[in-house]
Structure formats: structure tokens, C-alpha cells
Design a protein around this nucleic acid. Structure first.
Ligand SMILES: [Mn+2]
Ligand SMILES: [Mn+2]
Ligand SMILES: [Zn+2]
Ligand SMILES: [Zn+2]
Lengths: 139, 139
DNA sequence: TCGATATCGAGACTCAGGCTCATGACCGCC
DNA sequence: GGCGGTCATGAGCCTGAGTCTCGATATCGA
């Protein structure tokens, strides 16, 4: 059972229909590299309407299949998500994006909650830098 | 010497002119609460052009006077910045925004760098939750 | 197979923000 | 205190991401 099959079962389980456009978009997103803009998907899926691309991206976010990343310049990218909670590390030079997780970060959140009395419901943590390969190339 | 005076000196020192619109916007931003949208500033500064508001917000960001915050829904807010490095904690119910800093968070960044070989140049960390007052009110 | 309804697509629309360029305001210099 | 070279301004136009509308179509349980 492929990853696409799992996703299709998730749709069905939640009462969503398994449509041609949705299948097509899942395939297309697999071909677009480690992250992509909404309009990259539009361009790579001729025959699927723009509105449907945006609707589907939002739906897949809710299902945890896709995640949204704010790039350094403030623009938005999308990315196929791993199952676990994670954050994003991006190379500002070559654009590579990778996921990471950190127990220490979750501890920071707990500490902020303790100090402020807030109940924490969500957070956003993106890290921008230069990957090892780009550092070597630029040296 | 007021905070506005300090800012005006910073402008001068960097070779920027001290213009009427810039003074007016600094005053206006002091009246807008703990964060505001660009168009809140536009609305509160009649006589100052829209383009000038956006230009000035960007300039003040570069000078470290104003910082930009991504809200939970993805929209952008601005806020007068304290001098030190900090992050943002927002109540999703009443909208309160406060700053915090965390040595542990900076340690997380160092650890990510060590693990991945990246040189880290910037990061974005926003925390969304419910403040103590809103929790009490909603209980 | 059939009907209820979820979904689609074309195209208009919104909203933040940037660009252009002619006009006006600063400010260092004399 | 004036001058002039720039820096800054603002009206209006433009862009690009994302949303909305609504008539047409596809999905899927009964
Ligand atoms: Mn992700
Ligand atoms: Mn801030
Ligand atoms: Zn790189
Ligand atoms: Zn609150």
C-alpha cells in the first residue's frame, strides 16, 4: 500500500470523496521537489482549476498531509509532511528544505506557558540558514 | 529624551531624512495598541500616502524599531519592538501580544546547527495560545 | 441504477503590498 | 538665510496569492 493509498483512505474515513482532481494533485505534488508554491501546483496540473488547487491544499493541511511554510521573504510554500510534529530548516541559498524536531523546543514552550500563565495552542518555528554544501561552495 | 527622539537620531545617523510623514507615523503607531495592521496605520494617518506607510514600516523594520509578526491565520501584523532579541506570544482570543526571550531557544538553534551542519542566519518563532484572563473568563 | 450532495471550474473579486514618476521637502554648503 | 542636489512623497496603477459565486458534474451509499 503506497503513501497515496493511505492518504486516499484518510479522505474516505473523514467523509471526503475521492475525486479525479484530488488524485491528480497528489501525484503532481510528488513530482515538485521538497517544497513548492501553490501556483507551481496549478502549473503542473493542467486541467485542474485554480480554486480546486487552493481548496485541496487547505484540505490536505487539515488532514496533516501537507504543511505550509513561511519563507524568509514572507511568501508561502507547501510541502508534503511527515507524520510526526516537526519544524523546518531552509537553506537560503539553494532552497533546500528539511524537517527537524526537538524535544528541547517543546520544553521551551512548556516554560513559556509556566512563566506567562498562557495555555499554548500552537506555534510556528522556521529556521533559515546555509546548508553545509552551500557553505563549502561559497568558501 | 523620548523614545521618538532616539528613533529620529537613529534615522539621521544612518543618513535618512527626518520628514513630516515619518514623524507623523511614529506618533500614530504609538496610539494603535500592542500590534496593528499596515492599513490600521494608513487609516490613522490621513494625509500620509499608502505607499509611504509601507515604505516606512519596512524602513523601521530594518532599523529594528518595528517588527513584523505572522498571526495564526497567516496575516501580518506590526509592533513596536523592544531593543533586545525576542519572540512573540499571542492570545488567540483577546489578541493580546507580548514579547518573550529564551536562552533555551537559542540553545535549540545551536543544537540544530550542530546536528545538520547548517549555519543559522535567522529564525521565526511565534507562539499562539490563550492568556490567563481569557482562560478564567471562558471557564 | 439513482438521487442527494459534495466537488468542480471559470471567472470575477479582494486585499496586501510594490512600482512609477512627476512633484515637493530636507539639509549640507556657501 | 538662500540654493541645489538628492531623498522622499503620494496618486494611481499593477501584481500575485487566495477567496467567492454559481451553474454544471461526479461520487457513492442506498
Ligand atoms: Mn512540514
Ligand atoms: Mn517583536
Ligand atoms: Zn544550500
Ligand atoms: Zn486573552
Amino acid at each position: 500500500m503506497t503513501s497515496a493509498d493511505v492518504i486516499e483512505q484518510t479522505l474516505a474515513r473523514r467523509g471526503y470523496r475521492l475525486t479525479g482532481p484530488r488524485r491528480a494533485l497528489l501525484v503532481v505534488m510528488g513530482t515538485l521537489g521538497d517544497h513548492f508554491a501553490a501556483d507551481d501546483v496549478v502549473g503542473a496540473a493542467p486541467g485542474v482549476g485554480r480554486a480546486t488547487v487552493f481548496r485541496t491544499l487547505k484540505l490536505l493541511q487539515d488532514l496533516g498531509v501537507v504543511c505550509q511554510v513561511v519563507l524568509e521573504d514572507g511568501s508561502t510554500a507547501y510541502r508534503l509532511a511527515p507524520d510526526e510534529h516537526h519544524h523546518h530548516l531552509l537553506c537560503v541559498e539553494c532552497g533546500e528544505m528539511r524537517d527537524f524536531s526537538s524535544d528541547d523546543l517543546e520544553a521551551v514552550l512548556a516554560e513559556v506557558a509556566r512563566r506567562t500563565g498562557y495555555t499554548i495552542e500552537a506555534h510556528r518555528f522556521e529556521v533559515y540558514g546555509r546548508c553545509a554544501a552551500c557553505q563549502a561552495a561559497g568558501a
